[in-house]
Design a binder for these strands. Sequence first.
DNA 1: AATCCGGGGCA
DNA 2: TGCCCAGGATT
Length: 365
Amino acid sequence: MQSTNHHPFTEGLLTWYHQHARELPWRQTRDPYAIWLSEVVLQQTRVAQGLPYYLKLLEVFPTIESLAHADESVLFRHWQGLGYYSRARNLHKTAKLVVSEYQGQFPSTYEALIQLPGVGPYTAAAIASFAFGEAKPVVDGNVFRILARYFGIETDILHSSARKEFTDVALELIPKDQPAEFNQAIMDFGSLQCSPAPLCASCPLSLTCIAFQQKRIQDFPVKQKKAKQRNRYFNYFILEQGNKMLVRERKGKDIWSGLWEFYLLESSQEEELESLVELDKILPKFLHDAVIQPLKSPKIHLLSHQKIHCKAWHVQVPDNLDISHVEDFQWIGPEDFEKLGKSVLLLNLITDNLHLEIFNDSMPR
DNA sequence: AATCCGGGGCA
DNA sequence: TGCCCAGGATT
C-alpha cells in the first residue's frame, strides 16, 4: 500500500486524499464520454456550479451518439447560464467527429485526445489518466498554486513557459501506476486544503512546504498583476486671474495624492469632451462667460494600471468675476506653484504650454 | 505572446 | 471591487 519510493509530496498527498476525497459523480465511471463531458463542463467552472449542468446534460445526452445527433440549439439551451459558450459548440463538434471518424469510440491517448476541438492540455491529460490510466499530469489552476507553494516556484504562472515547467515538476511526482488517483487527489487538495486561502494549520504537507516554511504563503503562486488599465478622462482647466491660477492638492487614495494640479473635471463615463460645445454642459456656470481656449496637452498618459486620456483648456477669468471660493481649490502665483510637487502628466502639460503668459517662462524646473 | 470568452462565489 | 474557478481558441 505505502510505496516508499514516492516523493514525500506524493506520499502525503495520497494519504490526505484517502481521508478527504470528494464524492463526485464523474468519478463513478471510466466511460471516456462521461469523463470528457464533465471535464469540459468544469473548464474554468467551479464544481458546485457545473455539477447540475453535468447531471442534466448526461441525462439528456446519455451517449455520445445522442449528443452527436442532437440539434445544436438543444445543446445550447442546456448550456445556457454556464458561460464560455464556445465550449458547447466544440463539444458538439467533437461528438460528431468521434462518432463519424472514430466509430463512436473516444481516442485513448493524450496525443490523440488533444487534437479534439475544445480539448487542450488539461482536458486531454484528465481524460487520458481517468479513463485510460495514462500517466499524464493534469495542470490546472490548482496544480499551479499547489506546486508553486510547496516547491517555492517563483515563475510567473501567466508566463508562456510556466505550463511546461509545472508539467515537468508534476511529471516527476505522479505515480506511473496510479496517475488517476494522483490527479484526482491534487485537485481535491487544491480545492479543499491548498485553496487560494489555504488551511495551512491543518495541512499535512505544511512542514515540507517552502511557502509555509518561509512564511510566504501570500507570495505564491507568482502571478503578474492584471494591469487593470482603467480608462479615465481628465479635463484640465488652467484658470487664470490676475497672474494667479486655481490649483489644489490631490488627496485621498486616488493617484497622485499629495501632488498639485490645476482645476480638474473628470468625465466619469467613457465620454470624452470632444468640443468646446460640450464644455458648456460640464463647466460650472460661473465660467460660462470666461474666455476659453483649447490647449496642447499630452493625449494619453499611461500608468501601470490606468490609461488617462487628457485634454486641457486655458480659461481667462475676467477680473470682475469673483470665484474666490471653489471647494478644495485655491489661487496661487506661478512662482509658488512651481515649488509644489506635480505629476509627470501635469509637468508635460505645462511644458507643452510655456507660451502662456501666466507661466512667464518661470515654470519649468 | 496577447486577447477573448462568462457567470458566480467569496474576501 | 478584484480575484479565481477541474482552460482553450484565436489572432
